[in-house]
Every structure is written in structure tokens, then in C-alpha cells.
């Protein structure tokens, strides 16, 4: 939860238990060092767009991947996704949606909004951990992030 300029994963999760389990899964995969956690939609947007408490940050200094829960208070995950993918400054950031929902509508809408990947959180923790590790690994280590368009 540091505010360093080298945030690699932005984890957007409002459920404390899911948050802890996700962090645990990432930690086990040695991916826990550069996680920034936000607990709701507005907070996620403030961080990403360097507003409010994050105004000192530079927008170009974006995370390498965003793990986004769909079920958020105040502003839900799809709306956050829409803002991210609707803004040229953030559009290229890979977003992995994490959700309990198997609802087709959510999946379809997420893809329409330009999500990069989609994980349905299974009840079985081991499978969940596995999925998170694979996803994190892929986007952090193997995927070459494109150069973002400048902006302010």
C-alpha cells in the first residue's frame, strides 16, 4: 500500500476477506511487493487520474496491471472500467476483472468495454490463487506494455 512511483499492481477490491485472500495468493506468487490497494470506485479513479490524495502522482506512472473487482461500493467496477478504457491516458493499462459473477451480461459488457482478461473467483481458494498468480504473472512479466500517449 505504498505510494511509490513503482506501483505494479492496482488491486481494486471492496470485500476485506477477498482482499486478504487475493493478497495472500499474490504474496505466495511473490507478486506482493508493488501492490496498491483501493477499496472503492472513486478511490480507484483518484489514484489512476492522480486526483485528490494522489495529486502528487504523475499519470504516466501508471500500474502495470489493474485487478478490478466488479462489485464495488459507490461506483461499480464496470463504470471504473469505462473511465479507464475511455481515456487515452489510461486506455492501454491492462485490466483484469475479478468477479464472483458468472452472469453473461457482466462478461459481455466487460469485453465490450475493453477488458483484457476476466477471472471468475471460484469458491475453492486454491483454484482462485492459481488463477490470480497466472494472471498477475502474465501481465507483469510477459506482457510488454505499450507506450502510453502522453497527457496531463
Amino acid at each position: 500500500m505504498s505510494q511509490t512511483s513503482s506501483v505494479e499492481i492496482l488491486l481494486v477490491e471492496d470485500n476485506a476477506q477477498d482482499l486478504e485472500l487475493t493478497q495472500r495468493a499474490l504474496r505466495k506468487a511473490n507478486l506482493a511487493n508493488f501492490i496498491h490497494v483501493v477499496r472503492d470506485g472513486p478511490e480507484a479513479l483518484e489514484f489512476l487520474f492522480c486526483e485528490g490524495a494522489h495529486s502528487a502522482r504523475k499519470i504516466e506512472d501508471h500500474p502495470k496491471v489493474i485487478l478490478l473487482d466488479l462489485k464495488l461500493s459507490k461506483l461499480d467496477g464496470l463504470q471504473v472500467l469505462k473511465r479507464i478504457k475511455g481515456d487515452p491516458r489510461t486506455r492501454a493499462i491492462p485490466v483484469v476483472v475479478l468477479t464472483s459473477s458468472k452472469e453473461q451480461n457482466d462478461v459481455v459488457e466487460s469485453y465490450q468495454l475493453g477488458v483484457n482478461s476476466y477471472i471468475v473467483k471460484p469458491v475453492n481458494f486454491e483454484r482462485f490463487a492459481e488463477a490470480v498468480q497466472q494472471l498477475g504473472m502474465y501481465w507483469l512479466l510477459f506482457n510488454e506494455a505499450p507506450k502510453l500517449q502522453g497527457g496531463g
Binding site: Q17, D18, L21, S100, E103, V123, N124, F125
Partner: peptide
């Protein structure tokens, strides 16, 4: 699908 499964994940995950 969201809310009922979350606690189950907690039960399973923390166990």
C-alpha cells in the same frame, strides 16, 4: 452470485 459466494470463498480460503 456475488454476495453468497464471497463468504464461501472466505470460509474456504481462510480454512
Amino acid at each position: 452470485s456475488h454476495d453468497l459466494r464471497a463468504p464461501l470463498r472466505a470460509v474456504d480460503g481462510f480454512s
